[in-house]
């Protein structure tokens, strides 16, 4: 069930399903790739999300009729292959301690040890369904239910960039300093949002992320190297 809808005079939304699933999201990424592969006159950019792609166009160069016609052709016979596609990006994470003040709570809540939380969290690859909320903030799917943990009752006013957290059934990384209500279990030394560096971002929607546990020493080492460029 594909739906193509107008978004004002500058956008078109293509809905490819109404659930969060790997299959639908794979179709989203496939359509997104097709659009970018074709470089259609007047199309400015796209926003792939869980089950839709938003296409922004320049109304001085094209219009809804022309863009929606192209999109309906491109949306034909999308396969929606499951299994991880895109690239796999490893994110080093120093778990616990001052970087992960809520690690013990997550362990307690799941009635497991902190070591098990780390092992479970870092033992699978997470699909990036969408980027949003903050620049470079990945919405990740597929977390193990043993570490599902409700959000904090009152959000923190400032969470440092790089913090890795769990919010309900989701896990993610705060790409910049921000308020937020997720349970923090660790921090990556990687700088995920670098406005001064134009070019390929570390990851995009459709890629996958693997968290790799590191020690405090390794954290400091990587951090130093990052800062030196």
């Amino acid at each position: 069930m594909i739906q193509i809808k107008p978004v004002g005079d500058c956008g078109v939304l293509v809905e490819l399903g109404d659930s969060i699933s790997e299959e639908v999201n794979s179709k989203v990424m496939e359509l997104n790739r097709r659009i970018h592969g074709l470089s259609v006159e007047g199309i400015l950019e796209t926003v792939p999300a869980f089950c839709s792609v938003l296409i922004c166009y320049d109304p001085l160069k094209t219009d809804y009729g022309a863009v929606s016609k192209v999109l309906s052709l491109l949306s034909e016979s999308l396969e929606g292959k499951t299994g991880l596609r895109g690239k796999l990006v490893e994110i080093p994470v120093c778990y616990g301690g001052s970087f992960g003040p809520d690690l013990s709570f997550v362990a307690e809540h799941g009635k497991i040890t902190e070591e098990e939380v780390i092992r479970i969290h870092s033992s699978r690859d997470y699909r990036i369904y969408m980027l949003g909320f903050l620049p470079g903030f990945p919405y990740l799917g597929g977390m193990d239910e043993r570490i599902f943990t409700p959000r904090l009752n009152s959000p923190r006013t400032r969470i440092p960039a790089g913090s890795v957290g769990i919010g309900g059934e989701q896990t993610g990384i705060y790409s910049m300093d921000s308020p937020g209500g997720w349970q923090l279990i660790g921090r990556t030394p990687y700088r995920l949002f670098k406005p001064e560096q134009v070019g390929k971002p570390l990851y995009e929607a459709g890629d996958s992320i693997r968290f790799v546990p590191i020690s405090q020493e390794e954290y400091k080492e990587i951090k130093r190297n990052q800062e030196m460029g």
């Binding site: 978004v7 004002g8 500058c10 956008g11 939304l13 809905e15 109404d18 659930s19 969060i20 926003v47 999300a49 869980f50 089950c51 839709s52 792609v53 938003l54 922004c56 969408m130 949003g132 919405y139």
Partner: peptide
């Protein structure tokens, strides 16, 4: 389910 937003939404 979250999707893209534009100026004017």
């Amino acid at each position: 389910i979250s999707d893209g937003i534009v100026e004017g939404s």
